[in-house]
Design a protein around this nucleic acid. Structure first.
Lengths: 247, 247
DNA sequence: TAGATTGTTAATCGATTAACAATC
DNA sequence: TAGATTGTTAATCGATTAACAATC
């Protein structure tokens, strides 16, 4: 009955709120940060705090306190003036908003070294995501079980996705195979794809795609270093520039 | 003499331009896309094209043609009206701007499954990044060589970084170890850190940090799926929403 | 009460879009 | 020339900052 995922031992997590409702008008920039607030709030709670201020959260993430307050205000007032935010209900509220309140069944495409690392990555489970299957085409991998997740032949993609009621997919296959895989995922009913292959996925409008291009991340970092080293108009010298994807 | 990295067999890559100069005033949003244009331009070139239009590039990446033209205009006019962009010189210009023209020596911190996957990831080398060392504290890993990259004990971090003239570092260690590692990297002269650990790094202003939080990426995707499923005010139904980190 | 911190406003800054003259 | 596509402008949209009254 409860859709409470593991990992977060919150006593009354499944309260009388419709999970995931009412988040339609939060700006993307704020959504990106909500997930990071969640991370830091949990860390604070684990360290024994039960309150946090916008100033504190802002410093932890490198954003201004005004941004934090604005972001959290999208969740309907949760803070107390003069006091700050009570961590536990705030964590619940953020989870509810982001949809972390419900279980997402995730499949992995490609069990190469990156795919393997993703399966072993602890962070997904901790946020309430559940691996239900992995797919590959290499005969020696099929039938194995990695971190409790069974590896099937990609032939079985459609069947297993339906069977296991998977919602999300993570693609970690070679670039060339990506387009075809994405089409099949969409057709099989997957509603969101996190794509690690260095290609721009063009799929239908009825499926969400987020791309993570590791080489591009490093390249952007290198550029930041470059311009930090040649300030506006002086001689090259170390200068302040804090690049952070979610600033 | 030439600082031409491998991977891109461009004949006259090291022309008489100062590498990496003149990029100080490109907006961050554009920088993020430049690296993706580069990727697609290479693919087009490999497929035999020698010209590309802003419309074509825009469609490949899911952005408007106006954005593409504006972005590329930051590099000083490169296109030809009525024709489009000649791919080869444009690739060179983007590489020069981003600093891909020069070699960046990269060290890896942490050779767990994620670290291993990063070492094996082809994309970094292809963009001109060069692994020079990896560090770990697990005795059984020290002294091994992964993909031609030697694994040293973290004790040797400062010495090896100086010796190998490393510029950039990628952190793939457990969250708890990250702060200390980052401080040491900064002290040792590293100028940029790509951080995969789920913590907000607070380091001095003389070093650039970019964070990649994998769990947060998946969480943002889930949120996109959620609001795509509950359109503005109707009954839940699939709807258009194309989430992409670099839209 | 006094001190602290929120929620929110108005002002600024940055990015995207639409449109079109310039020009290949 | 005619058709195509750039470079760039003006208008719109979105996000951040600074400030402060409200209130715990």
């Amino acid at each position: 009955m409860s859709t409470e995922p593991p990992g977060d031992a919150e006593p009354h997590a499944a309260e009388g709120v419709s999970p995931g409702a009412s988040g339609g008008d939060i700006p993307p920039a704020a959504v990106g940060r909500l997930s990071l607030y969640l991370r830091e709030l949990r860390r604070l709670a684990a360290a024994g705090s039960d309150h946090a201020s916008s100033r504190q959260l802002g410093q932890l993430l490198g954003v201004s306190d005004a941004v934090v307050r604005r972001d959290l205000a999208y969740l309907k007032p949760q803070g107390r003036r003069g006091v700050g935010y009570v961590i536990r209900p705030l964590v619940q509220r953020i989870r509810q908003t982001l949809g972390s309140n419900q279980v997402w069944n995730v499949v992995l495409l490609g069990t190469g070294s990156l795919g393997n690392a993703l399966l072993r990555y602890q962070g997904f489970q901790e946020q309430g995501f559940r691996w239900v299957a992995a797919f590959d085409i290499a005969p020696e991998r099929i039938g194995t079980v990695v971190q409790d997740v069974p590896v099937y032949h990609t032939d079985q993609l459609e069947r297993r996705i339906r069977e296991l009621e998977a919602n999300l997919a993570i693609i970690a296959v070679p670039a060339g195979a990506t387009g075809e895989i994405a089409r099949r995922l969409a057709a099989a009913g997957i509603t969101g794809i996190l794509n690690f292959a260095p290609v721009a996925l063009r799929v239908g409008d009825e499926i969400c795609v987020a791309n993570v291009d590791l080489a591009s991340e490093l390249q952007q970092l290198a550029f930041s270093v470059l311009i930090a080293g040649e300030p506006a108009d002086g001689k090259p010298e170390k200068s302040s520039l804090k690049s952070s994807k979610n600033p």
